[in-house]
Design a protein around this nucleic acid. Sequence first.
DNA 1: TGTATAGTCGACTGAAATGTTCAAGTATTA
DNA 2: TAATACTTGAACATTTCAGTCGACTATACA
Lengths: 159, 159
Amino acid sequence: MRLTTKGRFAVTAMIDLAQRQSNGPVTLAGISERQKISLSYLEQLFGKLRRHNIVGSVRGPGGGYRLARGMNEVTVADIIAAVDEPLDATNCGGMENCQDEHRCMTHDLWTNLNKRMHEYLASVSLHDLVNQPKAKAVAASVAIDDRLRGARRDNVAVA
Amino acid sequence: MRLTTKGRFAVTAMIDLAQRQSNGPVTLAGISERQKISLSYLEQLFGKLRRHNIVGSVRGPGGGYRLARGMNEVTVADIIAAVDEPLDATNCGGMENCQDEHRCMTHDLWTNLNKRMHEYLASVSLHDLVNQPKAKAVAASVAIDDRLRGARRDNVAVA
DNA sequence: TGTATAGTCGACTGAAATGTTCAAGTATTA
DNA sequence: TAATACTTGAACATTTCAGTCGACTATACA
């Protein structure tokens, strides 16, 4: 799981899309203008999002993109994984080279940390982002800590 | 907050350092060999870590690096921030261009997400990583999360 | 039947970041 | 003084980022 401006663009664009799809398909040209992201770059990003079945496309006049699933079914982790693609997990791709005890230890520790990060990003859905009440950031921190400790959460609103 | 292999290398190296500093300063050459990271690359990373007062150096024979503070006082966020440096937070650096309502909204949403990620990484200390009992609780919480959310097909490479 | 709309695909680009290597230092210990 | 080890700077190939361009296909609508 990598986190760069690329994933940021994708998330921003997806929020825009989620907010507007009720009026029918949303054009990339519109997203481009509203979010100030180059149209051709969006085409690349949405090509990947489409191939990952996160969005669907409608061609021709009046066409555009729409979500392939409900907002609750699309997480930030999904979006980032779609555009950032593979990227090797650890220095020792699978088992190879892992005979040394110390390497294996740091290896486990790292994948562990990674897993938790992914877990967090997977816990935030597009719905959470779109329906986030303006400015509650601070209060949210408590909830996160609880969740990391294994606290139960009902279907909602991380935010 | 950016997350790349660069920060990964730094965290791995810091774990190695934390595990071995009880025997006195740890040389980069040693870390390089154990973790299979190029020595010169480590030199660059530790130069930054030193300038951020995360590690301290001891020159001359028998020298090396040691933590500048206790393991509990060094978080993953500290390490990543030190090596990944600046990187603008949002597309609209401060206030500029933020007159449009929608841009401001997604802008807030994004910085919010960012804040939470940072918060999480700041909650994991070097001590936590070194003394972590071999991966158990985390895996469990992931399973729970998936269940609550309704099984998802992608199962994205966590890495 | 055209034609404008809008997605699809591929190649290509300059700039930056990654990760590595080489080389020449300086400080410290023995 | 010699060996050790950090310090600094430069150069480098490779990859990714972000954007551009051009040609193409599918569809709605007049």
